[in-house]
Design a protein around this nucleic acid. Structure first.
Lengths: 218, 218
DNA sequence: ATTATCTTTTTGGTATGCCAAAAATAATAA
DNA sequence: TTATTATTTTTGGCATACCAAAAAGATAAT
């Protein structure tokens, strides 16, 4: 398998298995990578042969220790580049994902560590995702989704789980950027949409969007 | 054809045809890209179909206008990255080539232009090679090879045509870095090796090495 | 439990990029 | 000019990464 192919699979499995414990379905991988399910079946069998994943037929996949290690390395590269593009090169948080998607495949530890060092070895990227350190250690957090918050609670926006420019531009328009503090006003019984106050303005968030916003209770 | 494959061919043809006029042989392309000659024949036929090169069977190839344009863009990306790695990220001139070889395939004009702007839109890279501007315009120079110099002449080192770490480390050891001024003392009749003075030290340069050092008369 | 639906796998097939060895074609030397 | 050598092209083949459609297997719904 080509390194890039391996990397794309492992990164995707890592991202889909949240804390790396859950088993990931073929379909979700196919969706994320825009591949035919048949292709994913093939790919997983090969990755199993390479000992990067434990793939159980008709059940699902999870990363092995070595697969996890590689995945964390790719995630690190991706997030360091995103941070560098945003902080040092002046790109918007809605632009960095696409560029990092390509840069992440350049495998040079010295380069990534140099970028990290210039950035002061950050532990979070512009989307609020934790950046693994050079050894693959990742910070754990007790963040929750906006959709899991309680009425009248005060929260701080910590990250997003969707990196599409359209979503990020939408958030930016409502000042819902990382670090913003919000107050959950009501949760509509009708459609579960959330009304919150941010920067003194009232914003109505759809349940779908609330699933993609990560916050911390304050 | 995959973009990366196209880019590697075009860049190689560009580099081998000096001022982009000479016809390039299949073998030279095969050597540079470490490919089997049969593969190169195939590749050139495809590139001809894509209108990137004029490929005449059993004769050679040269770039079309659109091939030239693409080639110059890749050369720009490569050389901007080399310069950025050296000047902004602290890599040695013997390290930058290999990393830039990968980074050059990330095709994002905004990124390259941003890096160039941070560097002050440089016109030469750390090896003395000219960097095309965003429009593909490249600076012309009247530089000559060290092997073409005359005895007793004074010259300034302007670049190298070999980017291998071994060669560059060798040059560095003798202080033969970009900008160094040298005086050609003698050219040995026996083997055409060149004896020159650099930083008050006498250095003996083999004909092979002299072919790879670019200088300017001062 | 038995459809109906959704997911996964199998099967058969394509395009790309590569190579080794043989055949054809140039280029060079005798 | 003819023989020798070097280069290029052809031929036949291989591995990778894909896909569409059919078959098999799970899951859910009644």
């Amino acid at each position: 398998m080509r390194p890039e192919t391996i990397e794309n699979y492992l990164k995707t499995i890592y991202n889909l298995s949240s804390n790396n414990t859950a088993v990931v379905s073929n379909q979700k991988i196919a969706d994320k990578l825009s591949l035919n399910p048949a292709t994913v079946t093939e790919g997983l069998r090969k990755l199993h042969g390479l000992k990067y994943v434990i793939y159980e037929k008709s059940y699902g996949s999870r990363l092995t220790t070595s697969g996890s290690k590689l995945a964390l390395d790719i995630v690190r590269r991706h997030r360091i580049w995103e941070t560098y593009l945003a902080k040092e090169l002046g790109f918007g948080w809605d632009e960095v994902h696409a560029i990092a998607e390509e840069l992440e495949h350049v495998n040079n530890a010295k380069l990534i560590n140099k970028l990290a060092s210039i950035l002061g070895n950050p532990t979070y990227d512009p989307h609020g995702d934790p950046i693994p350190d050079a050894k693959g250690k990742i910070q754990k957090s007790n963040f929750i989704k906006l959709s899991e918050t309680k009425v009248k609670g005060n929260y701080k926006v910590m990250g997003v789980t969707d990196h599409s420019p359209t979503f990020l531009k939408y958030l930016e328009k409502h000042q819902l950027i990382i670090g913003a503090t919000i107050n959950v006003k009501t949760i509509e019984d009708f459609d579960n949409s959330i009304v919150l106050v941010c920067q003194k303005k009232e914003v109505n968030i759809s349940p779908k969007a609330a699933e993609c916003i990560i916050v911390q209770s304050i």
